[in-house]
Design a protein around this nucleic acid. Sequence first.
DNA 1: GGTAGTATCTCGCCCAGCGAGATACTTGTC
DNA 2: GACAAGTATCTCGCTGGGCGAGATACTACC
Lengths: 158, 158
Amino acid sequence: MPDQGPEMEIVHLLRAVTVELGAHSGRFAQRNGMHPTDVRALVVLMDAARAGEAMTAGRLGGALGLNSAGTTALVDRLERAGHVRRVRDERDRRRVTVEVDERAVALGWSHFGPLIGRAVELLRGYDERELAAIRDFLAGVREAAEGDTGEPGHNGSG
Amino acid sequence: MPDQGPEMEIVHLLRAVTVELGAHSGRFAQRNGMHPTDVRALVVLMDAARAGEAMTAGRLGGALGLNSAGTTALVDRLERAGHVRRVRDERDRRRVTVEVDERAVALGWSHFGPLIGRAVELLRGYDERELAAIRDFLAGVREAAEGDTGEPGHNGSG
DNA sequence: GGTAGTATCTCGCCCAGCGAGATACTTGTC
DNA sequence: GACAAGTATCTCGCTGGGCGAGATACTACC
């Protein structure tokens, strides 16, 4: 399966970026005595916070692909480390909303901030058409990865 | 930390792509009764094969950040599943080269092929300047992620 | 107030990965 | 050839993340 043209270079580049980004957040995890899953959880929680949504234990576990037992253990770890707080939902007392601690947010920004800043800086060097190309390509790949379940002969039409 | 402009949209998009690509290969793992690490190992092995290099157990473990015990267990799993073969290096009989089985390669292509094909298809829709922008941006992010260890105030000089 | 439904937690287990040390082989010296 | 030092892989015992099953606490509907 030899190189099929200049396109494959970019495909491999994208994969390399994925690997490197994973390694980057892995270093954050290791440096703070956390498991990769814990970092993913914090990211999900911060996303929700940024969107102004409350995140329950169940939704967090769902987003990470964990079952309820694993989710409980995860929130236990994060709480023990002081990164999150469990807060009983007063409207529905079965629910537990998980809130990120300010210090965890600051910790995250101190690690990922420079990388994000660099990416923004890079992007400022492009004009509108170039930005559109980057945006469209990434959106296209995301859709392809979401949609393509990798199951041959299984198509979602209907 | 509100949106800092159109650049942040792309940064979040890139992160979403990373997440989605991880989930995609996770589905491949689960569907074939493999661990995510096993998939990463196959990718490393196929990369080496494509580059025409032999991959020893030690180098494989190193690439994945595993110690020797974990590497042995990993190769055991892959071998038991028939995805790789252990081959004693005849020049240096301490070494074990790990060879990917043809069927594992075919299995991998049947899952990742469509996604790669779609990405190539997307890329064919751009002109030279747009392609250069995508390539440069990805290369820049990769470098930033490699270089930025996330350790504030820790620089290599003196 | 009772029953069904839902969100989270507890318990027991499996297995990926680690640290330490054993084993098998190569290289260099005599 | 025998011996010592160095290197690649494997074995052993253990830790801990995640799962399945079931318990628990609460809400919703009648």
